[in-house]
Nucleic acid binder design. Structure first.
Lengths: 203, 203
DNA sequence: TAGATTGTTAATCGATTAACAATC
DNA sequence: TAGATTGTTAATCGATTAACAATC
């Protein structure tokens, strides 16, 4: 699914989606200007972003809110169920396993992996924790294409290699390391500490 | 501390920092080309970014690794101790309270707040959990300028208002809502589910 | 019809990259 | 000296914004 959308526009789609969903049921129509004002951005930008999702509005009235939500959800693939695995059942990993927010994007974390034999065999938030060694089998078994990497920086690259080997196509990495992976595998990073530090340095 | 650096360059500084720190002690010098190759970016970009930190290299040899680390740390304010509070001691909040990664940026989470009276009075990862009502006093008492918002979307705006009232200047928001705050308060968002959805839609 | 709003084309702005002089 | 690397200026590229025609 190669998309003709700048990644920066893509990143704004969930923001629109959350906002549109938060609107009262009664609001049938919404204009790009209203969205822009609520989110603090330019209205042309909003229209351009929305245009990528194949949604369209009516001059004078705006967009039908329900249609717009459906178009964004469709574009983001919320209706295509995707399985994910999580590696690293520490504090963050456990919290993500318990987090229900992935489902609105059609994503479910189905299995977790950890190197700690004390955790292996248990289940967290109803999801089985398996041994790192089972990663390849596990990924194949559950048909996961996505992985969340929540292990310490020191083991992140090794786990990444295993995930790639197992056939994972997208990795969301929480370890503060630049992972090396083939071009065919998409890696994105979230570094919470760095994000807070950046925020602090803007004050 | 108004910085003459594009935020996008600022965001790359922690990446350089992590990489430089990961290098073996023996490596005294490092060139922009080597950094660029390791991180998969252009070498001119690396030099431009590094130039913002007031570091400088020597033609032919490169940068002194230790100096570069010090310059980036200094620029990011890692040497100025900053206190943060965390609101919402759920799974994610607890994980962040236990996470040690903030200290390398000079940030410490000193107190937590939660609306659940069962949690109030306990401590998580050695940090006291207080009632939401104590937020204003707590922030004043510990001199925090930063806050991590890890409450459900439904209460995020109300907590944000309290944080602003309490004098917090920067908020890292994990709830999938666009917070309204005065211009003088910097808000940045991390939406893990949206990040994974975006990643998925790039596959 | 007049006015509001969309969608698109052109202009601007900012970030990245290319070219190159300086220098060690 | 020759070659590698920095730092900066100019060119390119991409994203945002402005202008405006289309339309309901």
């Amino acid at each position: 699914m190669i998309k003709d959308i700048p990644e920066i526009s893509l990143q704004r789609l969930p923001v629109y989606l959350n906002y549109l969903k938060s609107l009262p049921e009664g609001d049938k129509y919404i204009s790009s200007g209203a969205i822009a004002a609520a989110l603090g951005m330019g209205e042309v930008l909003v229209r351009k972003d929305l245009a990528y999702t194949n949604s369209s509005g009516r001059p004078k009235v705006g967009y039908v809110r329900a249609q717009l939500i459906a178009a964004i959800e469709d574009y983001l693939g919320c209706n295509q169920k995707k399985n994910a695995v999580l590696v690293g059942v520490g504090g963050l990993g456990s919290a993500l396993l318990a987090y229900g927010g992935f489902s609105k994007y059609g994503i479910e974390i189905v299995e977790a992996f950890d190197s700690d034999s004390k955790k292996v065999g248990t289940s967290v938030a109803g999801k089985p924790v398996r041994a790192d060694e089972d990663l390849c089998d596990g990924v194949a078994g559950c048909g996961a294409v996505l992985a969340i990497l929540a292990v310490p920086a020191s083991s992140a690259q090794a786990v990444c290699d295993s995930l790639v080997q197992a056939g994972i196509k997208g990795i969301l990495n929480f370890a503060p390391v630049q992972l090396k992976a083939p071009e065919s595998v998409v890696v994105r990073n979230i570094d919470v500490a760095a994000s807070l530090a950046i925020l602090a340095s803007l004050l």
